[in-house]
Amino acid sequence: MAHWLSQPLSWTTAAVFLASAVAMLLVVLLFVTYAIYFERKVIGWIQLRRGPNRVGPYGLLQSVADVLKLLVKEDVIPDRADRTLFILAPVIAFVPAFAVLAVLPFTETLHFADLGVGLLYYVAVSGITTLGILLGGWASNNKYALLGGMRSVAQMISYEIPLVISVIGVVLLAGSLNLKEIVAAQSGGFWNWFFLKQILGFAVFVVAALAELNRTPFDLPEAESELVAGYHVEYSGFRFAFFMLAEYVYVFAMSALATVLFLGGWHPPIESLGFVPGLVWFALKFAFCVFFLFWLRATMPRVRVDQLMTFAWKVLLPLALLNLFLTALVKELVA
């Protein structure tokens, strides 16, 4: 890929880029399909159930059937909704979710855009999704959707700050904003991975990332028992599918990001295990992150909305700052 990226833009390179983007989209869609399946299975197992098992062998086609159902459903737009925004919102929510994938490196050679400010790009672009959610909540002209949308925006903005500050520690240690170089800085055994050196930063990152993803225990925007479904209560059919898709693509992106930033990317835990391809290591760590999300969902109740805000501003943010400060201090003293 690096080879192609360094070529001047021509019809061939454009075709290659397009082809690889489509391939990536397919991979992500496949991931989303089976992430949902896997989530339902894991939660089912934890709850002594079998999970989906009716469609296809072992229920493997369940998500496919669900998506098909959503696609053929009637597309309802409420009468009093703001039509343009209502239609636009799912797109705004989804496009950034896919766009952030461009900077994620999966192995040394398998990656797309190799941006110098990859991390910054990720954070900036993913922030746009918030807008989509707010628009969705607002345009639906529904009280529950509005409450859900507002909560969601408040939550995502508040947690973005500790999230970004917590990763600055990593940036300081690696000395780069380029995700590839951040991974490169973690080579040579798991004790070099940043989750150990940055244990505090990692903890803040995990919590803030959960909140960013709107996953349990921070799934307030769609708090079923309070807000019925939150910002997408009026959405149905494929527009709803877009919101769901955005959510799960972010699960993909965030898990990949956590792997890259803190879990050493494609590096094996011990040098001598280097014969296993990097992609496998990446996939393993990535799968663990995803599993962790599902596991949390099966365990935790939901945080209360006002506590959520105080937690972000009074606990996470100071912790993230402290982490930054300590990292800088240690780096100054040691180096």
Binding site: V42, W45, I46, Q47, L48, R49, R50, W295, T299
Partner: peptide
């Protein structure tokens, strides 16, 4: 919850 993950299903 992790411990119950592998338990026998009851449905």
């Amino acid at each position: 919850t992790l411990r119950r993950l592998t338990e026998k299903k009851v449905t």
